[in-house]
Amino acid sequence: MLRALLYILPLALTIYAFIDCLNTPEEETKHLPKVVWVIIILLFWIVGPIVWFFAGKVRRPASARHGAGGWVAPDDNPEFLKSLKDESAQAKDDESTLKDWEADLRRREEELKRRERGEDTEG
């Protein structure tokens, strides 16, 4: 089992580095052209992927990657938090409107019952 792990982990690392290298735009590769990085990753299948991750790609901080227009966690997104407040205010407005409608319905039902009782006694 341990022998299999000694082959599977470097292979998985190599595959991941290979795919990462292929998906990286040419302008984000450092020191060497992208084609050379692919050859290094595939030829030196333990050292190549490690060197790629540390020296082959421009690393940007998370704030730069997900800055303007990018994905932001909901609890860090002021627009999302504002929309929750707006929804909460809308729900309160809807609730007050519903209470007004229920009160109006009760008033109309009572008025209708009074009319029916009045018509029954008159008739």
Rank of each mutant, 00 (worst) to 15 (best):
1 M>Y: 08
2 L>F: 11
2 L>N: 10
4 A>H: 09
5 L>T: 07
6 L>G: 10
8 I>S: 14
10 P>C: 13
11 L>M: 13
12 A>K: 06
14 T>F: 05
16 Y>M: 11
16 Y>I: 13
18 F>P: 00
18 F>E: 01
20 D>C: 07
20 D>Q: 06
20 D>Y: 02
23 N>W: 02
25 P>E: 07
26 E>H: 08
28 E>A: 14
28 E>Q: 12
30 K>Q: 15
31 H>N: 13
32 L>F: 12
32 L>Q: 04
33 P>Y: 00
33 P>D: 08
34 K>G: 03
35 V>A: 13
36 V>N: 07
37 W>L: 01
37 W>M: 02
38 V>M: 14
39 I>E: 03
39 I>W: 06
39 I>R: 05
41 I>N: 00
41 I>L: 08
42 L>S: 08
42 L>M: 09
42 L>T: 02
44 F>M: 09
44 F>K: 00
45 W>V: 04
49 P>E: 00
49 P>N: 02
50 I>H: 01
51 V>K: 00
52 W>C: 00
54 F>R: 09
54 F>H: 10
55 A>N: 10
59 R>G: 10
60 R>K: 14
61 P>A: 11
62 A>S: 12
63 S>P: 09
67 G>C: 04
67 G>T: 00
68 A>Q: 11
71 W>V: 03
71 W>E: 02
73 A>H: 15
74 P>M: 07
75 D>A: 14
75 D>Y: 14
76 D>A: 10
76 D>I: 04
78 P>Q: 06
78 P>H: 04
78 P>N: 05
80 F>C: 02
80 F>K: 01
80 F>A: 10
81 L>A: 14
81 L>C: 13
82 K>Q: 15
86 D>F: 13
87 E>Q: 06
87 E>T: 02
87 E>F: 02
88 S>D: 14
88 S>E: 15
89 A>S: 11
91 A>L: 05
91 A>W: 03
92 K>G: 04
93 D>H: 09
93 D>T: 04
94 D>S: 06
95 E>V: 01
97 T>A: 15
99 K>H: 12
103 A>H: 11
104 D>K: 15
104 D>M: 10
105 L>R: 15
106 R>D: 14
107 R>H: 12
108 R>P: 06
110 E>H: 03
110 E>S: 07
110 E>P: 00
111 E>F: 09
111 E>C: 05
111 E>H: 09
111 E>G: 15
114 R>W: 07
114 R>P: 05
116 E>H: 08
116 E>K: 08
116 E>Y: 08
116 E>N: 10
117 R>D: 12
118 G>L: 05
118 G>W: 07
120 D>Q: 06
120 D>M: 02
120 D>H: 06
121 T>L: 14
122 E>H: 13
